[in-house]
Amino acid sequence: MAVLLSTKAAAMEMWRDALLALDPTLEIRLFPDAGEPADIEAAVVWTAHDMAELRRYPNLRLIVSMGAGVDHLFRPPGPPPGIPVARLVDRMLTSQMGEWVLLNVLRFHRQDLEYRALQRDRTWLELPAPVTAERRIGILGLGELGTHAAGLLRGLGFPVMGWTRRPRALDGVEGFHGDAGLPAMAARSDILVCLLPLTAATRGIVNARLLGLLPRGAFLINGARGGHVVDADLLAALDSGQVAGAALDVFEPEPLPPGRPYWSHARVVMTPHAASITIPASAAPQVVENIHRARAGQPLLNLVDFAAGY
């Protein structure tokens, strides 16, 4: 039996080599060269792969998504019914996202946008020093990524709050949950960080109402999915000064078309969905483990809960 591998062309061979280094007996086929469809027992794929195409493989018993986010799996037609889908929960992905969040929190906290503007104008001006203990950080989502980011921020002395759908206790983090908790946390968030999974319930959650609840001059950091943000509402909030700046790593669509306003907005810092990038050598062990578990009929790691949406 064989494993089908489908990702960006530049990463295909790295993934193959990382999997074979752990289990040289694996037969790995690189999409689109799948060979005989009946041979495929597992598919290790990323967002561009067509879920409909996976219905060609009658003996498929496992799908592994090469990332932490799984919203792409919910696009019609979705994965073949009855086939378990696993996502990656990888320490390197988590660490990278924490670094990116920290980078941008400090960028805004230490007035980097203002100092860069002064530099462009050749103006020597010392701005009032910010106080870390007074810069309140609100994190939307306290899963693997949000919990790690919260710990990093707490370690620097920032007051950290977190919002989740259901109550979640986390040491040193003030918790908010549900419909009532969201506006309560937003009203106290000088920097709002979105690390939520994208579901029907969270799509468009960063909208005019939520942005209007933030303290005037607050900042937004979105490392989750572009669908969380209503672009027109964020641009209006930036232009009015309600939001003083935004760091965005994710967009709809991607790649972001050249004509979109974010590209040239003076108060927006962009990265091209690069905040957290899967490193094959780090992620491969859990992929190989799940392939072995699927063969043995054992419980799988990090299964996607399609009812919950992540």
Rank of each mutant, 00 (worst) to 15 (best):
A2R: 07
L4I: 06
L5N: 06
S6H: 12
K8E: 14
M14C: 11
D17K: 15
L19D: 03
L20D: 08
A21C: 10
P24I: 08
T25I: 02
L26T: 13
E27K: 13
L30Y: 01
L30T: 06
D33F: 11
A34M: 12
A34F: 15
G35D: 11
E36V: 13
P37F: 11
D39H: 10
D39P: 07
I40L: 09
V44L: 07
V45Y: 03
A48T: 09
D50V: 03
E53V: 05
N59F: 02
L62S: 03
M66I: 14
V70K: 00
L73N: 11
P76K: 07
P77M: 12
P80H: 06
P80W: 03
P81A: 14
I83T: 15
D90V: 09
L93D: 03
M97Y: 02
W100L: 03
L103P: 00
V105K: 02
F108A: 09
Q111R: 15
D112Q: 14
Y115H: 09
Q119N: 11
R120C: 00
L125C: 04
A133D: 11
G138F: 01
T147S: 15
T147K: 06
A149C: 14
A150M: 08
A150H: 05
L152W: 14
L152A: 10
L153T: 04
R154F: 00
R154K: 14
G155N: 04
L156S: 03
G157N: 07
M161E: 05
G162F: 14
R166L: 05
P167F: 10
A169V: 14
A169F: 08
L170G: 06
D171A: 15
G172Y: 10
F176P: 09
D179C: 01
D179H: 11
R188E: 15
L192F: 12
P197E: 01
T199D: 01
T202D: 08
N207G: 08
A208G: 08
G227N: 00
D233P: 08
L235I: 15
Q242K: 13
A244L: 02
A247F: 09
V250M: 03
F251E: 01
E252T: 13
E254W: 01
E254M: 02
P261M: 06
P261D: 04
P261L: 02
H265Y: 12
R267F: 01
R267H: 12
V268I: 15
H273N: 08
A274Q: 14
A283C: 04
Q286K: 07
R293M: 09
A296F: 05
G297L: 10
L301H: 13
N302W: 05
V304R: 04
A307Y: 00
Y310S: 05
Y310N: 07
Y310P: 00
